[in-house]
Amino acid sequence: MTRAIRRIYVEDEVAGHPRTAAILGRFPNAEVVRCGRYGEVFNPRAQDFRLQKRRPALILARKHRGQVLETPPGYGIGGERNYYFSHMLNCIYDCRYCFLQGMLRSANYVLFVNYEDFQRQIDETVERVGESWFFSGYDCDSLAFEPITGFVESFLPFFAERPQAWLELRTKSVQAAALREREPLANCVVAFSFTPEAMHEQFEWGVPSVRRRIEVVADLQRRGWKIGLRFDPLLYRESYRSDYADLFAAVFDALDPARLHSISLGVFRLPKSYFERVYRLYPEEPLFAGPQAESGGMISLPHEMESELLGYCREQLGRWIPEEISHLCSVPEAETR
């Protein structure tokens, strides 16, 4: 991964930030290019996300405002007040269904190095509204870039001292060393996303195998970490029944369902404008070619197929887990931006 980054853009404003120096130190052979604001590199129109995925660059920047944002109403895993924050934009994995391909113009990784400002806003939020959930891992994977970002290493001690602030880390990574090396946090849920093996192989480029991830989740659960499972997006194909039945069996064979914190489910869906962009990037991709329906500005499966898929998965999950910890995610992920 580190070898793959050949160019690092550094905003002038964070050139002297200690985290910038530490990260640059990990890439001694990368070309360092200074820039004014990250948007000059990241936002221009004439860019091709798919081409850039071949060789993404890293951009070190400062997040100036909006470090912590409210999630849409109805979103969450049981808490009343829900917020999300993104220390990073884009992901080292290349999942064909990912909404980031439709939302962002560039596949370069943007890392906001001013963690202290995120933490200050989290403090201000809790002070203002009381106990709250803070979701990380929507615009990126919370753990996958950990050896470079030190995100978890910085935020776990922070949350450890703030029991009113709940943290969700969401990941497909097996980079769990930062979690294994410390005592579990009572107010942190580590949420792992899964799709069945066949879909993983077809759609999740660069993502560790389902089996390896299950091993890591099981290990973290044994160590006392609160675990969440995210079956989102649920994907449809003819063999989905056996695909999901096998996945659930493998997961619950390794995990103790009684000790799971939460499970969420959501069918594959994208805002229409994102879908159109992603379709233009991957016109040969069967995932975007099959039956689809538009409703409320969203593209998803036709209603009957969606209900069938969701119903089957909920029914299967019901064999292992109580309804109270299962949450249906009907809010399009992209609306949480």
Partner: peptide, 11 residues
């Protein structure tokens, strides 16, 4: 004004 040509190949 500044521009940043992306290099998606081995330079």
């Amino acid at each position: 004004r500044a521009w940043y040509p992306p290099a998606v190949f081995d330079p």
